[in-house]
């Protein structure tokens, strides 16, 4: 049953996002050590399997979580047909996944 699966997936991904977002925000604060340059960041991230896994997981979880919410919003607030909304949400999810993984690769690759 799609509705139930999506509902469960949205909750489970929210569960995973909570620590991921906290670590990410903490990192943003800690990473700034008297100014920040692209070269400085890349020197720490390039080749790091840990950060690749962390942000890779982050992107996958977001790409599942966000489109489910967007689908609900589109369904409730636009007059679009159910099928159209599903395709739009799926497209949005794939976009997030593609753009996100590309960004992760750019930083750690």
């Amino acid at each position: 049953m799609m509705e139930r699966r999506l509902f469960v997936l949205q909750r489970l991904t929210a569960l995973a996002l909570a620590p991921l977002v906290l670590v990410h925000l903490g990192l943003v604060l800690v990473a700034v050590r008297g100014g920040l340059t692209a070269a400085e960041i890349l020197s720490r991230t390039q080749g790091s399997v840990g950060w690749a896994l962390f942000y890779g997981l982050f992107v996958v979880v977001v790409a599942i979580h966000a489109p489910i919410g967007v689908r609900n919003v589109l369904r409730e607030w636009t007059g679009l047909a159910r099928g159209a909304v599903d395709w739009l949400a799926l497209g949005f999810g794939l976009l997030l996944l593609g753009v996100g993984l590309r960004a992760v690769w750019a930083v750690v690759g």
Binding site: M1, E3, R4, L6, F7, N72, E76
Partner: peptide, 12 residues
């Protein structure tokens, strides 16, 4: 249970 969790159900 399935119908209550289906389209237009609890998740809404």
């Amino acid at each position: 249970l399935d119908r209550a969790m289906g389209p237009g159900g609890c998740a809404s």
